[in-house]
Amino acid sequence: MVRFSPEYEVAHEQVKNGAIGRAGVIRLRRSAVASAMNDADTCLFQQIGLREFDWLRGTFGEVERVMAREVKRETVHYALIMLRMAGGAIAHVELELSGSEVTEHTAYELTGDQGMLSHDSRESTPIRWSGGQLPLVTAFPEWDSTCLNAHDLRAALEIAAAARESVVTGQPVKLLHGGDEG
């Protein structure tokens, strides 16, 4: 979940502490390598979009309206989702599964009336595991309790379903109570 990755945790805190002021336009991008999951039944909004939808809600509040477009080609599965947040901000979320990507890529630009925060995973230098016979430990026991609760998961799934509906109908989809049905 991006809510627990350092770049997104810091951005969340900065936004909550007023670093960008009143949020305006938010851009998120996630690209992943196409794999066996990239078949005709793949819901791009659920496969790689839930993380972004969850983080957006947690950082900028509820989503009121969703508009989405999707393109599927031989080697690319791309979607653009426009979200109107309850606080007035507009979020552009780009999702892509592609055979041309070498690794997963994430980026954000968060703008407001007081400034902008940005991050691009291609511009950072991550620690890479290399060599040796020991597997890289990926479990973090201290994070065992830091998972999505049922409300957050339901809300992210509702946004994904609204995006899918928008693609099918070609119309924006209004979420009840900004994604919180009670």
Rank of each mutant, 00 (worst) to 15 (best):
R3C: 09
P6R: 15
Y8R: 13
E9I: 09
H12P: 00
E13R: 14
N17F: 15
N17M: 10
G18V: 12
A19G: 03
A19M: 07
I20W: 05
A23K: 07
I26Y: 01
L28N: 08
R29M: 05
S31F: 00
V33E: 15
A34G: 01
T42K: 08
C43K: 07
F45G: 09
Q46P: 01
G49Y: 09
D54N: 12
F60Y: 12
G61N: 04
E62F: 00
V63H: 00
R65T: 15
E70Y: 03
K72W: 06
K72E: 04
L80R: 15
I90A: 09
E94G: 10
L95V: 05
L95T: 06
E96A: 06
L97C: 07
S98L: 09
E101L: 12
T103W: 11
E104N: 07
T106E: 07
E109G: 06
Q114P: 07
E123D: 06
W129A: 12
L134M: 09
V137I: 09
F140K: 11
P141C: 00
W143R: 13
D144S: 06
D144W: 00
D144R: 12
T146K: 14
C147F: 10
L148A: 12
A150G: 05
A150P: 01
L153G: 12
A156D: 03
L157H: 12
L157P: 00
R164H: 03
T169K: 09
G170H: 10
P172M: 04
G179M: 06
G182I: 00
